[in-house]
């Protein structure tokens, strides 16, 4: 009995529930994906699923298209999000925190609801659904995830640096290009990670906003996984996407971590 009490009073043993949770809901599913990806319908080991991805153009094309859409979405988010974050972080323009809240507020509403609302919006105004609607919807959905990290980084810029730049002869425009912009880049990077990566794997948004016309990589994976005979191929596609996302975050993640901006 004493042994048990001593075991549970140790701080390290408190992590046990989380450890079990991670094992059951993160590590095990990942292992299952790997397992399924390397098997065929009969359960034999194979690498055919990966060969199929490279040789059959269909999935590969969807993947490249998805990356393209994600890039456009990210660029749109930077174009709209950066000035918004700049204005929000500048006390001259933005006197209250309420405006910040208004920009962040959409994040509290579920993705699907916002997307359905966008569909309705397009219906009412008579605008056609399709690629344009998809890009609008994605940019709209992910904009707060771009604004917030940039805003956070800008808020952390020491105001005395701006004064020092002015003092050394920098006009308002020069202060921006020489000090604020370079110092806000870690925030932009963080925003890119939060917009670009989730957009590649998104599926519900593309289905709703294009009337199932355009399939993004996420939708393709979903379609394959839902059918039992193509489940292994779907698992392989998931694994490929995971690897690519993992590699991209490795490239960008190191720097973003040092500057500790925004949400992650």
């Amino acid at each position: 009995m004493n042994k048990i009490i001593r075991y549970f009073s140790k701080r390290s043993s408190w992590s046990l529930p989380y450890f079990i949770f991670l094992l059951l809901f993160v590590v095990l599913p990942l292992l299952l994906i790997v397992l399924y990806a390397f098997r065929d319908n009969q359960g034999h080991f194979t690498v055919d699923n990966f060969v199929k991805f490279v040789t059959q153009k269909e999935a590969l094309n969807t993947f490249i298209y998805s990356v393209g859409i994600a890039m456009v979405t990210t660029i749109l988010c930077i174009l709209f999000g950066y000035p918004a974050a700049y204005i929000l972080s500048n006390s001259e323009f933005n006197k209250s925190k309420t405006t910040v809240l208004l920009f962040i507020l959409p994040m509290w509403v579920n993705f699907l609801i916002r997307t359905l609302a966008t569909v309705t919006l397009f219906d009412i105004t008579g605008l056609p659904l399709g690629q344009g609607a998809l890009m609008f919807g994605l940019a709209y959905d992910f904009l707060p995830f771009m604004i917030y990290p940039i805003y956070n980084t800008m808020m952390k810029i020491d105001k005395s640096l701006i004064e020092a730049a002015q003092d050394l002869g920098a006009s308002r425009a020069k202060v921006f290009t020489k000090v604020i912009f370079p110092l806000s880049l870690p925030g932009v990077l963080s925003g890119v990670l939060m917009v670009f990566l989730p957009t590649i794997s998104t599926f519900a948004i593309s289905e709703l906003l294009t009337m199932n016309d355009i399939q993004l990589f996420g939708s393709v994976i979903q379609t394959y996984i839902m059918q039992s005979d193509t489940m292994n191929y779907g698992a392989a596609l998931s694994l490929i996407m995971l690897l690519i996302i993992g590699i991209t975050s490795l490239f960008t993640g190191g720097d973003a971590e040092n500057e500790s901006p925004g949400l992650i």
Partner: peptide, 19 residues
């Protein structure tokens, strides 16, 4: 404006540009 004044300031907490 400050950027047109022929004066320069040494700030208490240095305010060096970290980048």
């Amino acid at each position: 404006p400050p950027y047109k004044r022929p004066m320069n300031t040494v700030f208490q907490r240095y305010a060096l540009f970290p980048h």
